[in-house]
């Protein structure tokens, strides 16, 4: 990897709004997060809308013949991305609860997510 140690630390939030499998956004978005993690920035990842389906347990992609990348979300914490937020309303609208996710997440109210977004230097939407 073409990794350097920058002196600047920026607050960068990935905003994941797509369901997995139907499109590639959440898979390639994960790849970006794992690369950016090597740059020692202040990273977070927020799941809004259908993005919340990305983290659902028991996804079995064998019959589809596609890569089961969801387990890889489990390594985010090992990569130093510990701030994983889920939008409460998106989760509830979709009949999900925190136990349904493969990793521990922080469930946040709309206003809390707005405030988090506003404090970022950059947001990366996938």
């Amino acid at each position: 990897m073409e990794k350097e140690k920058p002196k600047i630390v920026k607050k960068i939030m990935f905003v994941m709004r797509h369901a997995p499998h139907g499109t590639i956004y959440s898979y390639e978005g994960l790849e970006t997060a794992l690369i950016m993690a090597a740059y020692e920035q202040d990273l977070s990842m927020t799941f809004i809308g259908d993005g919340v389906f990305t983290l659902v347990k028991n996804q079995k992609t064998e019959s589809l013949g596609t890569k089961g990348f969801v387990a890889t979300y489990g390594v985010l914490e090992d990569y130093g991305i510990e701030k994983i937020y889920v939008d409460k309303q998106s989760m509830e609208d979709r009949g999900l609860k925190p136990d349904d996710f493969i990793i521990p997440v922080q469930v946040k109210e709309t206003s809390e997510i707005s405030a988090l977004m506003e404090e970022q230097d950059a947001t990366v939407p996938y």
Partner: peptide, 20 residues
């Protein structure tokens, strides 16, 4: 080039604007 370039650009820039 690699995703590291996106990272470098994001760190260097005052703004990142995504079009999709």
């Amino acid at each position: 080039s690699g995703l590291g370039q996106l990272t470098d650009m994001t760190i260097e820039a005052d703004r990142l604007v995504t079009f999709g």
